[in-house]
Design a protein around this nucleic acid. Structure first.
Lengths: 219, 219
DNA sequence: TTCATCGTTAACCTTTCGTTAATTTTCCAT
DNA sequence: ATGGAAAATTAACGAAAGGTTAACGATGAA
């Protein structure tokens, strides 16, 4: 299990990291919350975030709010025992659990395990597999005959599962698409991909259109 | 408080159960640890497990290891063996406390109270949860099938809990609504949201109309 | 040239918004 | 209490916006 920690008390961070490491939990601590956010943006396979609210010079809940705009990773908030009000613990803002400081590292471990278990989904073989070096996507053990633009669009969607991506973003993300092209182009490409996946457009299984927003891939 | 006990000495189990009962602790004892495990699997609202390590023909630590694969319930282990290895290994496997046998029932009671105090139950999940990145609102663990306008209105209300929001404000806050639309539009959208929440309009639970003012969300 | 691919357009279809109107509920003055 | 006005609820419907895709032209590489 890999987790991110945002904690400015480096000594405490070190102690917790050492403890959790013994139980197979790998911790990456960031003193600077904004760097942590960008790390979470890039690296998608973290299992949780431990967020300390008593950060100097900024509101930890703002960090949580920012995070929630692009990620639904489980979050455990920790804060001084004195402020226990509902507002502060941030459950409304999408926190998953709360630990008043000071706490036993064992407690943190238990909460982490509990939270990731709660979210855990039965692992199954992915139906899609992207081979970046070959520029190929394999679907149900068959290589899809995709054009470069189709490959790029589908890759981008698969790499952001369950998140609706808007048409502009796709346009910019794909090298094979001219930035000056109309956003309708995306619709056409999606349609062509769906045909190659033999999707029923009335009831698509993998590429769902989110009205007014864009398209999303559901694994 | 409800706890599970795994103890093959039925006489001892009886004595402890009787004692703890006086202090409001309800004990269910299982002679067979595997039956205990499956009971813990099904019934999630036990507050602790008291595990005797010196079971006939099997290692209590194995039971602990198995338990930890699916549950984070607090565990007190006890053992008659005088050497320290049970204690050390047990705590390492995720036990919360250790009691050397024989012990005073009073001691057990104190440890139980201490452990459950320390290990406050994680906050229960809110009924509504906005997943901004997914553009979804989950209600009672089910994603609501909302139109863009409904999503925006409901999000706005949820983000301002217990505050009556007037119709104009909602109209302006929602991109999917034309500012030139009639404020009655809001009434219609609210009605449609309520239907999707299966609210009784005579007695709504979550979206309350405040006469002459607007609507408010109560969590 | 020929071929594959991208991009636009247009026609068609579906969903959603917004208005209206009929009905019910709530509140207040009497 | 009670009657009536104001406000809220919602079914129904038309208009508008958004999504889908066939068809075809443009572009560039082999």
């Amino acid at each position: 299990m890999k987790v991110v920690m945002i904690e400015d008390d480096l000594e405490l961070a070190e102690i917790l990291s050492e403890y959790l490491k013994k139980y197979g939990i790998e911790v990456t601590n960031y003193e600077d919350p904004f760097i942590a956010l960008s790390a979470l943006h890039i690296e998608k396979d973290y299992d949780a975030l431990i967020l300390d609210l008593t950060l100097p010079g900024m509101d930890g809940l703002e960090i949580l709010k920012k995070l929630r705009e692009f990620s639904d990773i489980p979050v455990i908030i920790s804060s001084a025992r004195s402020d226990l009000s509902d507002k502060v613990i941030g459950l409304d803002l999408g926190a998953d659990d709360y630990l008043p400081k000071p706490y036993d590292p064992k407690e943190l471990e238990a909460r982490l395990k509990a939270i990731t278990r709660r979210r855990a989904k039965p692992p199954k073989e992915p139906e899609f597999r992207i081979y970046k070096n070959r520029h190929e996507i394999v679907f149900q053990n068959k290589t899809l005959p995709l054009t470069p633009a189709e490959y790029e669009v589908l890759s981008y969607l698969i790499e952001h599962p369950n998140q609706p991506i808007n048409r502009e973003e796709l346009l910019y993300a794909c090298e094979s698409l001219s930035e000056s092209a109309s956003v309708k182009t995306i619709d056409v490409i999606i349609s062509r991909i769906r045909q190659k996946l033999t999707e029923d457009p009335k009831n698509p299984r993998y590429i769902i259109s989110v009205r007014g927003v864009g398209y999303k891939f559901v694994p």
